[in-house]
Design a binder for these strands. Structure first.
Lengths: 207, 207
DNA sequence: CGTATGCTCAAACGATCGTTTGATTCCTCG
DNA sequence: CGAGGAATCAAACGATCGTTTGAGCATACG
């Protein structure tokens, strides 16, 4: 077992390089040779530490989704179930952790990976995401249902789904809106959150 | 030059199979060998008729985007510039042609291809889409600006972008909402359009 | 009829893919 | 010190990729 050291251990370096290259070139487009070269490790290290490329992909997801789920649930606990809970507050608990994750230094490209995974339509990956995401989405949906009692279950599902689409689109950065070079990253993130929350809140509240 | 015949000509058969396989497995995931086998043509036919796989991908896009652009522009002409033009009407002109295209018999998978292309983040493809989409988006945005004069240009861009995200998400079918087997396709399409228009109109109109 | 021309075909090309192997190095612990 | 497991390494494996080749077939035209 390797002792703690100044440079990151091999596993972490592979995960970091994988996240970036998967975001940039896709899961099939990024080869293990590019990946291990970028990480500065031997080609065989991926199969030694992870077993296969597919299991590496899973690990890339698991690491970030655990963070995201944790932060979202914590934020939801803070604002939900209160008499003064607002749609905007619940939306912020849903949106802000995702924006933070998508813009913090090392994991800045993970939301692109996630958007790719959505687009891939792979059933194995869908099941994996559903298992790790399912209970979180259900908690948020339940809170929305409490705040929007006049909406039918089907109507609510639709709207939450459309909110997710707008969020995914905005975060993965393929829209027209790009951060201008003279705007600090944190400010841009706050602006993004504000626009998203206002837009989504209006859509959800629509009679 | 081949005469008109009962079976589709080779070029068309390749384009059809390509659309389906690109949607299902991605651009890199679908090989020319799978593709030509599915189309019932020889492996070399792709390079003979299209020059390369990349140019085939371009042709798949061009064919459907021309349809989509044409229908959207025609629908926009019908409803725009009138004193009684509504947000909902313009949204319908934007949304309904896309839903029709994404669900009509042969081209049913193209919107998935488009969603993939968005996620790919490839600059060449982005430029190509911008060249073929740009003027259409500008026309729609101009009409929204006329109907929502209180919104700043930046605010409007943001909201149109979020509408696009919700539409792309809903159409590519990775959301929770799936057509139930006992609902006819046309009815499901109309429901999708209604939900999308109501949600997006509320988001756009938000003060 | 003979000959261009458009098209299809099986076969092969070199490159690159994910994975495996077996030797070698590194570090720990008896 | 020396044994032994963990980790790394260069090299090779078979498979598959996009593309090219050159022969063969069909149809149209003089």
């Amino acid at each position: 077992m390797p002792a703690s050291q100044a440079v990151l251990p091999t596993k972490e370096r592979i995960l970091g390089a994988a996240e970036e290259l998967f975001a940039r070139h896709g899961f099939e487009g990024a080869s293990l040779r590019q990946l291990t070269a970028a990480a500065g490790v031997n080609l065989a290290a991926v199969n030694y530490h992870f077993g296969s490329k597919d299991r590496l992909i899973e690990e890339v997801f698991r690491r970030r989704l655990d963070q995201l789920n944790g932060r979202r649930m914590a934020a939801l606990q803070e604002v939900s179930g209160q008499p003064d809970t607002t749609i905007e507050g619940v939306l912020a608990a849903f949106i802000v952790p995702a924006l933070e994750l998508s813009h913090d230094g090392s994991g800045s490209l993970f939301m692109r990976v996630l958007a790719r995974a959505f687009a891939e339509h792979d059933d194995t990956l869908r099941r994996f995401l559903s298992e790790n995401y399912g209970h979180v989405m259900r908690q948020f949906t339940a809170e929305f249902a409490r705040l929007l009692p006049h909406l039918s279950k089907e109507e609510l599902y639709w709207r939450v789904d459309l909110v997710t689409g707008a969020l995914t689109h905005a975060m993965s950065g393929f829209g027209m809106i790009q951060r201008k070079s003279d705007v600090p990253e944190q400010q841009h993130r706050e602006q993004t959150a504000q626009h998203l929350i206002r837009f989504a809140a209006a859509g959800l509240k629509s009679p």
